[in-house]
Amino acid sequence: MKKIKCSKIFIFIFLVLMAVMMLVPFVWLIISSLRPNMELLSNPFSIPETIGLDNYREVLTRQPMLKYLFNTFTVALIAMVIDVAVSVMTGYAMLHRFRFRKKLSMMFYVGLFIPANAFMVPYYIMITRMGWYDTLGGLGLIYAVVNLPFSIMIIRGYMETLPMQIMESGRIDGASTNQILMKLVLPMTRPGIVTVCIFIVINSWNELFFANLLTQSDKSKTITVAIKSYLSAFEANYSFAFAAMVISILPTIIVYVFLTNKIIGGMTAGAVKG
């Protein structure tokens, strides 16, 4: 009995160490973001003498950070609506047997492994020709494309775990194909849809490649592009950079704190078939 306890303590210490390693940078980030630049430069790790929100005030007045956050969210929303609609329709159709089902299924699978970055030139030209360069719609469309293979995989995978008898009974009760989808299949696919939505929001919050390529002005810049610009433009003013970073990660952290279980549970619904 004693031996087991001993090993449990070791495991506990190991888990704590891992957590510290992962999270210390964030604590340091938050403390640094509250300190004036001069103090930070002269003595980055001393016990802070002055602490205040000055950096935040400066960053928020100098750059339209809230607009960038809004842009990021809008882009994610556009991608989310397109991807969920397309994936649900595809997943539903793929529940049925037809001639090219296997080939089509293979094509979606290939899509998962083709890095969309490889298509930067064609996408850039397409979006520019359509006059959507530097618009939220253009970037949203590309995000939808980038996330589509994954979202089809998740939603399709989830639909396949649903009991087929339900569709059968729906048909016997005289429901049309559309009704079966909207009234029966769609509500039951909700966990899969939540997974896809969370993934897309997080990916949009992460994405820098296409955001950098397809946006230019404040009206469509996303938060990642704004943060990146701090690396070059404000090289000397680290505390502003830190404050900007905290602003960029705050929304997701707040959402995470309130919806922890939904997010952890939701991220994996459909990703693992039991």
């Binding site: 891992m18 957590a19 992962m22 999270l23 964030f26 997080i202 919050w205 992460n206 820098l208 938060i223 990642t224 943060i227 990146k228 970073m245 960029s248 990660i249 997701t252 952290i253 959402v255 995470y256 922890t260 997010i263 952890i264």
Partner: peptide, 13 residues
């Protein structure tokens, strides 16, 4: 919860 936290933060940040 703690281990998962960095996954909701943007990679850029």
């Amino acid at each position: 919860v703690l281990y998962f936290l960095p996954n909701v933060i943007s990679i850029t940040a």
